[in-house]
Design a protein around this nucleic acid. Structure first.
Lengths: 216, 216
DNA sequence: CCACTATTGCGACGGTTGGTGCATTAAGAT
DNA sequence: ATCTTAATGCACCAACCGTCGCAATAGTGG
């Protein structure tokens, strides 16, 4: 079973809804998840072995196997933990500015050193559990970004019935595509260009729903 | 074309290893590559082991190890072999039609059963060799697609200095993004919508190089 | 046809990782 | 303090990896 979302650093020990949220369990969980991030940054997703994680965390392999099952369980837990932050999309005052800033954040995250984000995306292909967690993270992030489109509609930059998701996908997909799939070196102009392209198509009604109130 | 048969360095410094592309060598290569595809389709990239490939191909493990080195070498050879086909982008008579047809081909390939293309993309993250081969394949495919933009320019559908690559990326990235990264179920309307969006932005000069003859 | 040799098959080895039964420890309650 | 039992550590096995030396095979040139 997956060990539900762990609390971030130093969170107050909540009044024990779980059978035994003892100090040892929480401490080991934090140690293991930190070890996963560290191993992921050093050796990449391919060098992420249960043995190395357990050794770095200072716990026995069997403990990691029982609580997380396999590497995918570890990744899934890390990904779910990533959804617990308070991230919000940028707010620059214009649609194109928001999308460009968003794309810049994406590019920075994908090219950061160590490449943890890229490693997590790549690793999500190896496991069903990590895949599901990755999808939840995508859904969470794109849902939060919908406010960008809402604001643009409120500013009358976009027609009222613009579909947020396809617009956000069109704006961000080129950045992911080039950096994750094509693996081309980062292009400083790409975030802005992709944002401009999507904003242009959006203002030309390329993302308005034919029927109203129809969510995909 | 062949995996160039990397000789075991240091073991036997043969000064003039006469290449021997005899019938047996080629036959074994084909058997092994077919086995790789079959294993990839059945067990996915994660279940792709050297032992299983050798057993299915009817050759000894040592042979596979000697000629391809590791799983990455096998994948790289498969990817390189994929570049040797005579694929050409569709020609429907219009830019949007070409892009839509291209996107439909991409979507079909990515959702085919067994998911060999998706498995190859995912597997390209596991190995340096497979990664390089995958990049070569991307480059080959996108280079072949540039003729779509050339034809559109010749038809006066696009301004003369339109950059082919960013346009092709913008048109195809959403399909890859949704199917490979986001892992959403295939949307029959997505190829056409992405093509329409890109064509619209392109006709609005979104992909023309600001300065003269563009590079990249 | 024959000699030469690159290539393959064969069996085995040590090493690493994935995964699991069993004994021990420690958290939580009485 | 003591009991209960969830959680952990330990030992163990199975599968796969990567490599080696040697024998057998089959292209290649004479």
């Amino acid at each position: 079973m997956t060990p539900s979302a762990p609390q971030p650093e130093g969170a107050r020990p909540v009044p024990a809804p779980r059978p035994r949220p003892g100090g040892r369990t929480a401490r080991i969980r934090r140690q293991v998840l930190d070890a996963v991030l560290a191993e992921l940054g050093e050796h990449g997703y391919d060098g992420l072995t249960m043995d190395a994680v357990a050794a770095r965390a200072g716990v026995h392999r069997a403990t990691v196997y029982r609580r997380w099952g396999d590497v995918g369980g570890l990744l899934a837990d890390v990904l779910d933990a990533a959804s617990d932050d308070a991230w919000q999309p940028p707010d620059t005052g214009s649609l194109e500015g928001d999308l460009a800033a968003l794309n810049r954040e994406i590019q920075d995250a994908l090219t950061a050193q160590p490449p943890i984000v890229a490693a997590l995306i790549a690793a999500s292909f190896r496991s069903e559990k990590a895949d599901h967690a990755q999808r939840r993270l995508w859904e969470d992030r794109y849902a939060r970004c919908e406010v960008i489109v809402d604001r643009a509609i409120r500013r009358a930059e976009l027609p009222p019935h613009t579909d947020a998701r396809p617009l956000l996908i069109a704006a961000t997909a080129p950045v992911y595509h080039q950096l994750v799939l094509l693996r081309t070196p980062p292009d400083p102009g790409l975030p802005g260009r992709a944002a401009r392209t999507a904003a242009l198509a959006a203002s030309a009604d390329a993302f308005t729903t034919p029927s109203s109130a129809g969510d995909t």
